[in-house]
Design a protein around this nucleic acid. Sequence first.
DNA 1: ATGAAAGCGCTAACAC
DNA 2: GTGTTAGCGCTTTCAT
Lengths: 389, 389
Amino acid sequence: MLTLTGALTGLWAARPIRKGYNRQVNSRKRITIKQVAKEAGVSTQTVSRVLNDRPDVAQETRRRVREVIKRLDYQPSQAARSLSRGLSYSLGVVAYGIEFFGPSRALSGIERQAAELGYSPLLYLAREPASNDVARFIDDLLSRNVDGIIWAVPEIDDNRGWIEAQFDSLPVPAVFHSMGPRPGLSTICVDNYLGGRLATQHLIDQGYCHIGLITGPMDWWEARERARGWRDAMTEAGLIESGLGQANLPPQQDFIVYGSWEAASGEEGLNQLLDRRPDVEAIFVGNDQMALGVMQTARRRGLHIPQDLAIVGFDDIPEAAYFWPPLTTVSQPLFDVGRTSVAELTRMIKVGRRDMSAIEPQTIMLQPKLIIRESSVRDKAAAVQVAGS
Amino acid sequence: MLTLTGALTGLWAARPIRKGYNRQVNSRKRITIKQVAKEAGVSTQTVSRVLNDRPDVAQETRRRVREVIKRLDYQPSQAARSLSRGLSYSLGVVAYGIEFFGPSRALSGIERQAAELGYSPLLYLAREPASNDVARFIDDLLSRNVDGIIWAVPEIDDNRGWIEAQFDSLPVPAVFHSMGPRPGLSTICVDNYLGGRLATQHLIDQGYCHIGLITGPMDWWEARERARGWRDAMTEAGLIESGLGQANLPPQQDFIVYGSWEAASGEEGLNQLLDRRPDVEAIFVGNDQMALGVMQTARRRGLHIPQDLAIVGFDDIPEAAYFWPPLTTVSQPLFDVGRTSVAELTRMIKVGRRDMSAIEPQTIMLQPKLIIRESSVRDKAAAVQVAGS
DNA sequence: ATGAAAGCGCTAACAC
DNA sequence: GTGTTAGCGCTTTCAT
């Protein structure tokens, strides 16, 4: 049976074209402003004024022109517009990892807000998040006359290095996702540090003391921030040694395992953690996929969640509510990150039109939300109650 | 503690601009072909020829021009190009549901292939998959001079109705994702029918007889195809009544429940199915999310998977391998759907340049693959062996 | 092999 | 209020 399951391609020529594409594509060429003008008995300029909703057109003329536009189904050419006004009403979006939940949500938000404001997003996907061959993207975007750029590639390693070198010569405004505040740059992000704190504090509040951490790759800004949230919460609660050398507290390194965001690394992470500290009672896991790996492994090892081991994840992927048990996790307003970044970018574009130096970059940080489900709460009734509140 | 978890926005003005955007944006305006020409001591046409790799330029001249281009970091304006040649090298992509795994994979494939071929995708997201206000998208795309259109909105209800009315007047080629073959249209899709058969046959091969089906919404083409695969496999195996009235076989309706793609509907679906046919031994679930809901509910009801109930999903989302137990499912080559659709579209663009009627639309169907994991195999050793093969 | 001129479709600047 | 003129930056004839 398995031999049925190839990945080959079947190909058929479809039946003959019914009507097919319009053959007279040349004669039916795009209606232009000239034809509209002629038809309406006005100059192209007047049509242009109507198109752009300028006030200095007589009511009657406007009405007539509008009527012709509609009748001819005229659509102004953006290319021509873009050329003559120097504005394209398109935005360059450079993203990474849109097959993952977070980035794709953010992209949705970007598109939605852009559409509402009359912009179209040109999509570029980075192959390697850490790559520095940024110039290609930028050049391409600029050659397409984008009015602004959204850099939605996660901050990894020093893949922000190019900013130092090239940002100042960018002729259009740009905003950045998921990276720490930087002077002179507009950044839009979720407060991952707060997320880490919320998750950890929630476990602390449940009375857990030995709380492990499985991080994402530490060259990611997000992973570092979440880890920092855990560390500060733990330190403040007096649960780990803070580096000041309280000999009576366990060293934080005992409780930290470095994952890769992938479910497999959650599996491995739990094993490591348990080897090192069999007394771990709870774990804050850097994302939901790894949490899934942890839960599967816990089950394999005969550990019950949350009785033997409490778990909190990060992201609130749609599946998280259907894990077994349902996963407590930190939800990020990523759609809003997308929306906000477009709003901010268009603001900059508007201001920058007059004077690029007047832009006043902003750091916008949106707040995550703790979603409490069963995986972290010993008393089920409590969980349900809390979740419903 | 929960009161900490608002969704409000924190906003800080960033520190004063370090260097800020280039203030002399006007003086530093984009380099144009003229400046390159002047600098290289040739006419603009010659530069244009070099840009377009035309043969009729002397080696030496070409070298010199290239040198200047590089030195000035010149990027030709796509807007101007687009205007004068009537080609934009951009593609309109209308998609839906990119926060889900499938569509986002396809989108990745589109972007990748487009980039390789020198095209940039303009992204449009449908709000309502079934909406028929298609005209807005099309108009906008056309006004932006896209060279072709990829329609990646799933076929739902009669949301293909517009095609009848408007397709023939489209001035550019278009390809469609996830819909059945249609005369005169290029479609690229995965053979969902085959997927349904593979999944069901696999269960039949395991010796299961009472095999339920939880479908996606039946107004989706994909859901119907998958269901059809189940029905044919079941009928051919003589497990359900085929409509020819074999009184000794159970009617198919007994085993079908209609879901919504959402995990919650898997939950509900299982309950319904068990109420109706407590003898169900296995279920083919229309997607992995619903399968997750089924598995959670099965567990709540004390059913062991696969001992008491075997499950096969559809999609092979990344989490599926980490469900408990790992989920047998049908993997779709959606990235390839994206790539292929761009390849096909650009082919059509090329051909259509000369003669739109010569395009010869094609139906391209890619094959899904059954991924066998533990959720459908009574004997674990067998599953591992099969999966590894 | 190279250049001059015209034009793609629109808008900005200036008449009237 | 409306029309005229001149580009935007590139490619396409058509000369040479």
